[in-house]
Write a protein that binds this DNA or RNA. Structure first.
Length: 276
DNA sequence: ATCTATGCCTGGTGGC
DNA sequence: TGCCACCAGGCATAGA
């Protein structure tokens, strides 16, 4: 599942292929991915040239002459560069034909991903984007307002860290890893954590994300390689997906539970509940 | 205002 | 082997 480091990796690897390319045609075998009328979308996009690719949190922004295409990969979205249409496989839902006769193809088994189009420069007025909090790898831990949001949240710390309106960029994998490094139990109610503990969590979120970006993200549960998302951070995972295996710190068996509906991995010994 | 439950989707898995 | 129920989960939305 693409989180901030994976989206960053996708952004960087796509730049090489796309910047300067013009869109000649669009095919959309499953147009529901595109959150506007397909003929409008085609009319606007055709003859637009890729000028840049940006990212905020888990959102990708493809910058064109007049528009910004906002793409969220959700759980399984991937982009491929194809040399010919006969290379397309199942689940490639939106395909852009480029100037160089190659194709940019959006692949998404679960069909949860989204593509939206806004006037250039208006990406931060989009409903979903404008609510996003500060990026989890760009946090100033002296941000009193942010600490205060944690202190006022009466729900598990894991749920707070997954709330993109508070901090953005973390998903299920990196939250588990961040809490393990911080020795905080994922079910702990955020409001009972001390300011120091919250700062520790935020510092560790940055450390985890920065390291994952360096390693090109995490690749788990993928059955085919995809452009830009074959990372190496899966070799660094301490608890996520490690249920039944010994904790790398204390050898206690890693447990899997559900927190806020999410599969959650932690070490019961390194991450005990606080005694009040 | 906060928090939780549900729907969107398909492929993989485990039970029979 | 096949059928089926169930699970995985980011985010929008509805509901408590």
């Amino acid at each position: 599942m693409p989180e901030l480091p994976e989206v960053e990796t996708v952004k960087e690897s796509l730049k090489v292929h796309l910047i300067g390319q013009k869109i000649k045609e669009i095919y959309a075998p499953y147009p529901k991915i595109i959150k506007m009328d397909l003929s409008d979308f085609k009319k606007k996009m055709i003859n637009q040239t890729f000028r840049d690719i940006n990212r905020y949190g888990k959102y990708l922004f493809f910058i064109f002459d007049d528009y910004t295409l906002v793409s969220h990969l959700r759980l399984e979205g991937k982009y491929f560069i194809r040399n010919a249409l006969n290379e397309l496989t199942k689940h490639e839902h939106v395909v852009f034909k480029l100037d160089n006769n190659k194709f940019l193809s959006y692949h998404d088994v679960r069909k949860f991903g989204t593509i939206e189009l806004v006037d250039k420069g208006k990406e931060f007025t989009l409903f979903s984007v404008k609510k996003l909090g500060v990026e989890a790898n760009q946090i100033n831990t002296d941000n009193i307002e942010l600490i205060d949001k944690f202190k006022r949240a009466n729900r598990p710390i894991k749920s707070v860290l997954l709330d993109q309106t508070i901090v953005t960029g973390l998903g299920n994998i990196y939250v588990d890893e961040t809490l393990f490094r911080s020795k905080i139990n994922p079910e702990e109610i955020a409001s009972i954590l001390s300011v120091e503990e919250i700062k520790t969590i935020l510092k560790n979120a940055k450390i985890v994300l920065d390291k994952a970006i360096k390693l090109g993200g995490t690749t788990i549960r993928t059955y085919q390689s995809s452009l830009g998302v074959d990372g190496r951070f899966q070799n660094e995972l301490k608890v996520h997906t490690m249920a039944g295996k010994p904790c790398p710190v204390c050898n206690t068996i890693i447990k899997k539970i559900r927190v806020g509906g999410r599969g959650t991995y932690y070490c019961p010994s390194c991450q005990p509940r606080k005694k009040i």
